[in-house]
Design a protein around this nucleic acid. Structure first.
Lengths: 149, 149
DNA sequence: ATAAACCCTAGATAATACTCTAGGGAAAGC
DNA sequence: GCTTTCCCTAGAGTATTATCTAGGGTTTAT
């Protein structure tokens, strides 16, 4: 059982363009061709593509993914290197996760302000503070609404 | 107290180039200029830039950030729109967080395999399975090491 | 045997977000 | 006053990832 590029595209959620692009970039060296040059994907290929998507969706660069794929192609002697690549990447993902969580808390804080009963007053105070700061520094006031000096 | 572009660059961790680029893109309409055209940043400006970084670092596109900044400039009448922008973005961030967490679990799974005592055997079995699959489908075997048919 | 749906490559184009260069003026220290 | 360091703009260049076009062959169904 093998799959055409279109079937794979539907299965993994990458466009046909992207699959061909990945192949061009050396991410799919394991994909075989039939006699007229069409790609034929096996289930094993799909597994690796799935891993590629995991790495890509956590922000790994194509060049690094290629390195990992090349390790896969080279067999079990590259296990140490794969481990190194993945654990470095893992650390980066954890850092990014933390950063996103922190930023999300700030966004939530803003949202709470906008959802508050006195949001109008809070926002007005904010803008008036910023306006006053501009004036105190003899700078042009860029805010539209300063009905209060 | 105001800050030069260089000081702001150091404070917020964006390059001077990036700050000027953001200004060009309409993300910093609140930044005033002195008499010779130099940018002068206030503390209030830094606060907004910090928010911009939060949005950028959670993946918001510059065009959307500009919309949000324009809402800030327009005063409290835009609260409903700001709320809409942020809560839509918040939902996207949550989705992305979930996806990253899922992918991370798969990466951890791979790492566990590589760290196992019998990793060599596991990986060998994997590659032999893939090789056999290729052969069964009469496809070229792209794997280097198939010392076992 | 012919239309419709697929597949291929090479290379152009796009979107996004910077990053740098050239050319020129301003400010601060000595 | 002069050197160093800073600031400015406009526009060119880069990096990354993805998408599309042109030109051409293949497969399937009727």
């Amino acid at each position: 059982m093998t799959y055409s590029i279109k079937e794979v595209s539907e299965k993994v959620g990458l466009s046909i363009y992207t699959l061909r692009f990945y192949d061009k970039q050396g991410l799919l060296p394991f994909v075989a061709r039939n006699q007229v040059g069409y790609r034929e994907f096996t289930d094993g290929d799909l597994n690796i593509i799935h891993t590629i998507c995991c790495l890509k969706d956590t922000g790994m660069k194509i060049n690094d993914i290629r390195e990992y794929v090349n390790d896969i192609m080279a067999g079990p002697t590259t296990i140490a290197h794969r481990q190194q690549l993945l654990s470095e990447h893992r650390a980066e993902v954890l850092t990014k996760q933390q950063k996103i969580a922190d930023n999300l808390r700030e966004i939530d804080y803003k949202l709470e302000m906008y959802e508050a009963d006195d949001s109008f007053e809070q926002v007005s105070r904010e803008i008036q503070f910023a306006s006053r700061e501009k004036e105190q520094n003899h700078l042009e006031n860029p805010y539209k609404i300063t009905n209060k000096s």
